[in-house]
Design a protein around this nucleic acid. Structure first.
Length: 584
RNA sequence: GCGCCUGUAGCUCAGUGGAUAGAGCAUCCGCCUUCUAAGCGGGUUGUCGAAGGUUCAAAUCCUUCCAGGCGUGCCA
């Protein structure tokens, strides 16, 4: 919002300078105008280093360019959105100092946009995010959890940023693992019927299957359980349904569940194989059917159909991705665990062999999640040995903490998830601290309309703001641009308070830029960290500046700042899928 | 061997080619009669893994090397 505005101004100034012959160059600025937030306050609220980059094109000294741009920016004027000071600084930066009307205008804009504040304009593009995609042969572990939270937060983020998003779970419901599941379940079933059969070697653990087999026996007639395949189909659906339920409890909801088996039933795998052979990217060798993957950038060729006649996961993936491409997305994102990174070149090769554009397929890899308790590694599962199961972590720390910690980090880095930290109710725990900031805003808004104790007389005073007045403020603050001007009126009385308010408002103003940037690099974690910064700025403001006071006009306008903060916190929490409580 | 990821403060991590390198934790000092102290302010803390290169400007881009993690199936 602010950055966009400044960028526009600089661009206009540049063009004016060209039009008037001050700069001898094309009208289009040859460098990207990047607005940054300077680290040092003396460098203004925002800064731009484009003059340094333009020096080469214009063959002028950077400082000279900055000064010229400054003059033209002043000529361009403010067109109503509040004014600012511009300064040219060595070695050629443009530093912007926003004034009070600009700050007050930001609150007004947040107020009028409400829950839409920060939203990107619809870009008319469709994106498919495929994630989790676990085998329906057991529960989800914490790694699946990371994948799920990244996918879900990314979907929220991109949708907020203006994409049309669909979320899909690809069910790996056929192949060797599923056969093994069916055989294990069937052996378990036969034993329950009193038959003495050997349990398959390296089969799935009997204790985890036993309750599901019981359930199948109670829900289905014997005639439906006569083969391992029939029982396998039932059990894998139980596992899938459990996964869906667990994901829903974390706020992860898919638009579609795509079955791998359905590709076989519909002849789609054969169709994909034919398409690749038509383009001459396949061959027979050693009794198997191969993809010329090496020609397509992989390190070696890959088997599509085993000598047994069964297709490999890669052939099935080819069929699945052909289907995705046919659905006409502008971009497809797959989220995989980093232990699958070796498959990336294979899948890219398949896409090329199908004659589709690999640039439309983006694969995000998530590194592992290490669980700690007070700095020491934990192994908590009774069921799966060393693997930590998602439902156990969820039960211990709750959905909000799980979502925050799995969303917050950069997917390329491993997560060190500390269970004790996630349960703490202090600033050490950012998930808590952000929610607390939201609750604090709500509390102040509530208290404004309540009676309060007069410390001198010891009597209760009537509320500072009546419910009716509060409604009026809420309504007016989206409409009246100048309602909040007095928020910043007391700079000289209390410079500390002014600085804290200004910092908070400028932080809030960055939401649109943060959303845009996070969406561009597909890192919802940036929003989580941004949210934490808001919470810190609010806390600072709260320390040095009272909202509810005897001065009604100041109270009203500061309530506006609190409403705006609450709104931006709510919008960011929604993206990462963490709840925004009104009381804690 | 080859491929991918990572290397920034004692620890966990941010950092978009820009100005003096940033948070939290830890540690030290100070602060609660006031809207939620479940907190706040301040101090200490760095060969940005190493060496070259590109650039007016490099933690950031390029090359080489070192260290760690993961992967390298007719499993998925």
């Amino acid at each position: 919002m602010v950055k966009e505005k400044l960028e526009g101004k600089i661009k206009k100034a540049y063009q004016m300078a060209v039009d008037e012959g001050t700069f001898k160059a094309e009208r289009d600025c040859p460098e990207v105008i990047f607005i940054e937030k300077p680290k040092m306050e003396s460098h203004g609220d925002f800064a731009c280093g484009v003059s340094l980059k333009l020096a080469r094109h214009l063959k002028l000294a950077p400082m000279k360019i900055a000064e010229t741009l400054k003059d033209y920016i002043e000529k361009v004027g403010t067109n109503g959105s509040g004014s600012m000071k511009v300064e040219a600084a060595q070695p050629g930066f443009l530093n912007f100092q926003l004034d009070k009307s600009f700050l007050s205008n930001i609150i007004h804009q947040i107020a009028s946009a409400g829950s839409n504040f920060g939203q990107g304009k619809p870009n008319g593009k469709k994106i498919l995010i495929e994630y989790v995609s676990a085998n329906p042969t057991g529960g989800l572990h914490i790694g699946h959890g990371r994948n799920a939270i990244l996918g879900s937060s990314l979907a929220n983020l991109l949708s907020f940023a203006g994409w049309q998003v669909e979320q899909e779970f690809y069910i790996n419901d056929c192949g060797e693992q599923i056969n093994k599941l069916a055989k294990s379940a069937y052996a378990c079933y036969q034993r329950k019927l009193g038959q003495s059969v050997d349990y398959p070697e390296d089969g799935y653990p009997e204790d985890s299957l036993s309750p599901l087999v019981d359930k199948a026996m109670s829900e289905f007639d014997k005639s439906k359980l006569s083969t391992p395949e029939e029982l396998g189909d039932i059990v894998k659906e139980y596992f899938r349904a459990d996964q869906e339920k667990l994901l829903l409890s974390l706020g992860v909801k898919f638009d579609s569940w795509f079955s791998e088996t359905s590709l076989h039933k519909d002849g789609k795998v054969e169709e994909a194989l034919r398409q690749m052979s038509i383009l001459d990217f396949t061959y027979d060798s050693e009794g198997a059917y191969w993809l010329k993957a090496k020609e397509l950038g992989d390190e070696r060729d890959r088997v599509l159909k085993k000598s047994s006649g069964a297709t490999t996961y890669l052939a099935n993936d080819a069929a699945y991705h052909l289907n995705k491409y046919k659905r006409g997305y502008d971009l497809m994102v797959n989220i995989w665990g980093a232990d699958h990174h070796g498959q990336v070149p294979g899948l890219k090769a398949v896409v090329k062999a199908l004659g589709e554009d690999p640039a439309k397929l983006d694969i995000l890899l998530t590194q592992i999640v290490n669980l700690n308790r007070d700095g020491k590694p934990v192994k908590m599962s009774k069921r799966a040995g060393t693997v930590v199961m998602l439902d156990e972590v969820l039960e211990e720390v709750g959905a909000d903490a799980v979502r925050y910690y799995l969303a917050e980090s950069n997917p390329n880095n491993p997560i060190n998830f500390d269970l004790e930290l996630a349960k703490k109710t202090s600033k050490d725990n950012p998930a808590f601290y952000i929610q607390y900031a939201h609750a604090r805003c709500c509390s102040i808004l509530r208290r404004a309309c309540e009676e309060y104790l007069d410390s001198e007389s010891g009597k209760m005073n009537p509320p500072r703001v009546s419910l009716e007045q509060m409604r009026e403020i809420e309504e007016a603050y989206g409409k009246d641009e100048h309602l909040f001007d007095s928020t910043f009126d007391h700079e000289s009385d209390n410079p500390e308070a002014f600085a804290a308010q200004k910092k908070l408002v400028l932080r809030l103003a960055c939401l649109p830029d943060e959303v845009e940037e996070a969406a561009r690099v597909m890192q919802p974690g940036r929003i989580a960290r941004y949210s934490y910064e808001i919470a810190c700025d609010l806390q600072r403001f709260y320390e040095v500046s009272r909202v509810l006071s005897e001065d009604l006009s100041v109270t009203r306008s500061r309530l506006g700042l609190i409403m705006a903060t609450r709104q931006v916190l709510a919008n960011t929490l929604k993206i990462i899928g963490v709840s925004a409580p009104e009381r804690m």
